[in-house]
Amino acid sequence: MSDGFWIVLIGALVAGSCALVGCFLVLRRQALMGDAISHAVLPGIVIAFLITHSRNTLPMLIGAGALGLFTAFLTSALERHGRLQADASLGVTFTWLFALGVILVSAFTGHVDLDAECVLYGEIEYAPLYRAFWGEIDLGPRAFWVLLGVTLANVLFVTLGYKQLKLCAFDPGLAAAVGINAALWHYLLMAFVSITTVGAFESVGAILVVALLIVPPNTAYLLTDRLWAMLTLSVILGALSSAGGYLLASALDSSTSAAIAVVSGMLFILAALFSPAHGAVPRYLRRRRLLASAEALAD
């Protein structure tokens, strides 16, 4: 199978897993969580590297995942006990952790072969090069299996917790009243966001993860008012962006990850303009028709 096929497939898996948790982030107004987590994991990765002295994936994933959860935890703590508004809590937390990570990198820069860029700017083009093996048999790109696992975990999480997640997103008060542990579901969601972010950006780069977490869900949000439709649509839109981004990148000879993010942005602009329910153009036309009929009545 060609590299192009694998790139589009891996992109679609990233899009799918990001869209599933991203919808809830968007609805809960925590859209910048992905951006925050993808920066805040830096110290975790450096520490994992310093402990194991290897660029092995598993310890780095664990270190990053731990820092991702810590970010979510610290943000909530600042908000609840420090009485700081949500956006500032997030801003203070992740910039601090990122600064710490950069300092660690430069303090140990003599001893380690690691820099901030290689963590944040992974490239999807290289994903097919790292293969997974079962004994001697080539099973395909490793990123494919990692992301397949992440996607399945997210599908399972969203299906099993659909009711709770939905209620927590739309009406936290009611959720608490009917006995749903809102804090537990908040941290579960954050855990899955961390896993998704970390699992994906190692192979495709942080910027693509941040984009796919929120751009397709927001596009879907403009197209529908139902949660299940929003989830389905955002997965489809993400997959479309992946295919479109691959084509765009081949045409312009540029980064595929970035191109996928750009295509998802273009889809958002299209939806913002032409979405039947919430688009700017149909809304304008409806208003003009209404005005015309009002004038006709006045005559």
């Binding site: 951006d35 700017y121 910027i207 693509l208 970035a258 750009v262």
Partner: peptide, 9 residues
């Protein structure tokens, strides 16, 4: 994310 992605492209 989208502006930054355009920049990276």
């Amino acid at each position: 994310s989208v502006y930054f992605a355009v920049g990276i492209m």
